[in-house]
Amino acid sequence: MKQTEKKLQYQTTLIVNGKTEKLTLPAWVSLLDALRHHLDLTGTKKGCDHGQCGACTVICDGKRILSCLTLAVAKDGSEIKTIEGVGSKENPHPLQRAFIEHDAFQCGYCTPGQICSALGMLEEGEAQTLEEIKDSLSGNLCRCGANANIIDAVTEVKANHYE
């Protein structure tokens, strides 16, 4: 990264869903807003912008993080996976299929964050029991109250694909 001008623009490269994106951004742009406003990747949601809801969860260098509390410039060179990179309409990820099967959402706004968080959890491999899984996914709020269906969907995918 090269600082081009004081308090102005920073050249930042993000590898988003496998694609190299070269952005020129001021430092105050969050990773969330970089995705939504600058890359038109609006699948990552803004639910609070303060790290309180989990809707903006993305997978950064293999770990689930909150893109709203992350500066885009600080992730120069990082690999970011957003919901758009998890699966497609034509070829959904098992988690996406399970969410549909279990009706694990209503309004759909928390859903990308729930799925990215679940994917992060499954790949971390730390949460094992039902209680641990619920706790590990508790950083993602769902106001529609689809919690039970979300947990059912994730535990099914864990049993079928991660054990």
Binding site: K46, G87, S88, K89, Q96, I100, D103
Partner: peptide, 17 residues
Amino acid sequence: SRLTALEKVTGSAKYAA
């Protein structure tokens, strides 16, 4: 299953903002 399901799980559903 709800008809908007694929759009919602893949992030292609667009909301007002």
